[in-house]
Design a protein around this nucleic acid. Sequence first.
DNA 1: TCTGGGGTCCTAGGACCC
DNA 2: TCTGGGGTCCTAGGACCC
Length: 407
Amino acid sequence: MPRTIIHIDMNAFFASVEQQSNPELRGKPIAVIGSGRTVVTTSSYEARAFGVKTGMNTWEARQKCPHLIFVVGDNRKYTHTSSEIVRIFLEYTPLVEVFSIDEAFLDVTGSLRLFGSAERIAYLIKARIRHSFGLTCSIGIAPNKLLAKLASEMQKPDGLTVIRPEEVSPVLERVPIEELCGIGSRTHRQLALFGIRSCGDLGRFPVEILRRKFGVIGERLHCMGLGIDDSPVVPVEEAEEVKSVGHSMTLERDIKERKDILKYLLQLSEMVGRRARRYGVAGKTVHLTVRYADFTTFGRQQTRKTPTSNSEEIYAEVVAILGSFVLTQPVRLLGVRITNLCYQREQLPLFAEERKKALATGAMDLVNNKFGDFTVTFGSILDNEEKGSHVISPAWRPSGIRNVDVK
DNA sequence: TCTGGGGTCCTAGGACCC
DNA sequence: TCTGGGGTCCTAGGACCC
C-alpha cells in the first residue's frame, strides 16, 4: 500500500516569529541568539543574504553584516506558535509526527479522498499558516519520510516540491548523498573515499561492503541510496518514552576553581532533578560531561543501586564522579544527565493526570511535552550569575569544528 | 568574544555469572 | 588444572538529528 507523506519545514522559524511579533524587524537582517557565550540560532533571509549563518558567533555575524539586529530568543513564543501550527496539521490527518519545533511529518494517505490531493492539502496548510501567523514554510510530498524531507529542502523559502513514486530513481541519481537526513559529515567523507557522491552511486554500491564498514548503518545507507524508507509517521501520543534527561551549560568564562564548578553542578543537578520529577522518571545512571577550554569533551558515568530523581542525590553522584579523575584544564562546559530511566507513574498520580490531559487537549500539550521545558526557572539557586543560553535551536550545524579523522 | 543545548542510537571492551 | 561460550550489565566515545 503506497503512502503519501508530507514534510513541513518552517522557514527561518525563530527569526520569522520575531519579525511577526515586532513589525519593526520585518524586512531587516536579524539574528536570533541566546545569552552569554552564544551563537546565531536562526537568521532571517535578509541576514542570510549577507552570509550570516546559523552557528556563527555574534562577532563573526557582525563582520558579515554590520547592521545586523540581534534578538535574544524567546522559547515560549516559539513553542506556543509551534503548538498552534500543529493544531492546523491535525485538522488534515491524525497522523502527525512532531519532528522538531519547526518540522513535522504528516501521513495523509487516508485523507486524500477527503481533501482531493496531497498538493491541495499542502496549499491549504500553507495558506492557513500564512494567514494566521504571517509565516512561510517549505513542503515536501513523497512516498516516504526520507524523500518527503529531501523534497522540502529543495525549494526554500515557501516551496512546494513533489517527488512522485516514478520520479524517485531519476531524482536520486543527481542528489548528493549529504542532502539525505542521516548522512552527516563523517559518513559523507567515508562514503566519498569509496567514490560515492550521489544517492544513485550509494544505491548501486555493494551492500556487503557497506555492512562491513558501517555495521547496521550500512544496511540503512543502502536503502537510503535507493530511496527506501518504511519508517512510520509516529504521532506524539504513541511516541516512545524519553530515555534520558539532561542539561548542560557553556559557562560565561572558563573556570578551574572546584568550588565554582560545584556551584554549577548543583544548579544543573537541580534542573535535571526537577525536570525528571515533573516527567515522573528516575534515573539509575548519572552522567557528568566536561568540556575543557580547548574544546576536548569527555564524560564519566556512574550507575547507582536505585534510581533517583532527587536533586541532592544526583548532585552527590556527580560530585563523586568529579572526584574520580583529575581536571587538567579550565572548564568551559558542564553537563549533568540521567539515563537508565524508570517511570514512576504509580507514585506520581499528578503525572498520569497531566498525561491524560495532554492527550485530550491536543497539540499544545503535545508540543510542550516534547519541547516545552525551555524556560526553566531555578527557584532556589539564584547566585549563579549566568544561566547560559536556553534558546534551543531548530537547526544548528557546526561550521568551524575541527574533525579529526580516526583512520 | 571562535565554536549551544537538547536528545537518540551504535560500537567495543571489560566484568561477572552460569 | 584449563579452556570455552553465551548472556547481561556497565562504561566510554562517536555519529547523527534538530
